[in-house]
């Protein structure tokens, strides 16, 4: 079974109304939120923040670019092919990178811009940012060999599919499921959810990363963590039990598409399910520019229109 398609009406832009709005997509007539800035004759947007068309009108064509900085870093190999990077950043960066779904593009200082890799913020402690990178292709291998300084570009916010659902969930039971490097996206989300007085359970598997590296951070926050050697069969059984016992109102699945589909199917197939569960997933599309221009993360899941997932937030 394919993943359920998100309805077009539910698509919001993660940057709408922010300091990075309007963006180059508004300039080019491809804004995913504003109908007028995507070629329609009339306004029928569903965005309830300040009007994007108005902001574009007032911006006089000035588009706010993301920040770039060259920073020193500390690097440890925590498992074969898996490196942990720590960088220290100033207050402005820290505020941004503590948000749900935050990620950065990073590359060795000497490497060209197009060598930058999107990496979720795995945690923020004081001024220290933790990033975890798995070497899987040329860009991540260049990064794992990096010495001296790295270049960072950001902030970006769309590593999870629906940060609005996370921000709106209060006093509820929540299930976190992760396998592989997707687990990086869980810690910032868990912090926000715990501030909103939710109770959290997590089922973690090492997956292709070969290591569970967020369990200590999650446990320290107060999340009930169960570690399993692999999702199939152990994790999936546990998740099924938890779904029945806990009746979570939100599930975040941070991992490969196979895992996301399996969990979503499980939710759909529960008998006599008398409660609603919101489903949030990591956005696994390949991302290169992060601003909807390069086309690498374009998705046709939303019908005819292809939407860049680096910008999109949506209900599932």
């Amino acid at each position: 079974m394919d993943m359920e398609k998100p309805p077009r009406w539910s698509i919001r832009c993660v940057d709408a109304g922010s300091e990075y709005c309007p963006c180059h997509l508004a300039e080019s007539g491809n804004c995913i939120a504003c109908s007028l800035l995507s070629g329609a004759e009339f306004c029928h947007c569903s965005w309830s923040g300040s009007c994007i068309y108005l902001n574009y009108y007032f911006s006089q064509g000035v588009i706010a670019e993301r920040s770039e900085e060259i920073v020193a870093f500390e690097k440890n190999e925590i498992a074969p092919g898996l490196i942990e990077i720590y960088i220290n950043l100033g207050l402005r960066w820290l505020q941004c990178l503590s948000q749900i779904g935050a990620f950065l593009f990073i590359r060795p200082k000497e490497a060209p811009n197009y060598a930058a890799v999107p990496v979720s913020v795995a945690n923020v402690n004081g001024s220290r940012i933790r990033l975890v990178v798995q070497s899987t292709g040329p860009k991540t291998r260049l990064l794992s060999k990096a010495k001296g300084k790295i270049a960072i570009r950001g902030p970006y916010y769309s590593s999870l599919s629906d940060s609005y659902a996370i921000k709106r969930t209060r006093n509820s039971k929540i299930l976190l499921v992760a396998g592989g490097v997707g687990q990086s996206a869980l810690v910032l989300a868990a912090k926000a959810l715990l501030r909103q007085e939710n109770q959290l359970w997590a089922c973690l598997a090492p997956g292709s990363a070969g290591l569970i590296y967020v369990s200590q951070d999650l446990e320290a926050l107060g999340v009930t963590v169960e570690k399993v050697p692999s999702m199939r069969p152990y994790g999936i059984t546990m998740i099924k039990d938890w779904l029945v016992q806990l009746q979570p109102s939100l599930i975040i699945v941070a991992g490969p598409e196979g895992l996301q589909t399996a969990v979503q199917e499980m939710i759909d197939n529960l008998d006599n399910k008398g409660y609603q569960t919101k489903f949030v997933r990591t956005q696994n599309a390949v991302m290169c520019c992060g601003d909807g221009l390069c086309g690498s993360c374009l998705s046709n899941e939303f019908g005819q229109e292809r939407i860049p997932l680096c910008k999109a937030q949506y209900c599932l």
């Binding site: 504003c34 009339f42 306004c43 068309y53 009108y57």
Partner: peptide
């Protein structure tokens, strides 16, 4: 009436 985008355009 509205939304603001229409009032602007």
């Amino acid at each position: 009436s509205g939304p603001p985008g229409n009032c602007w355009r």
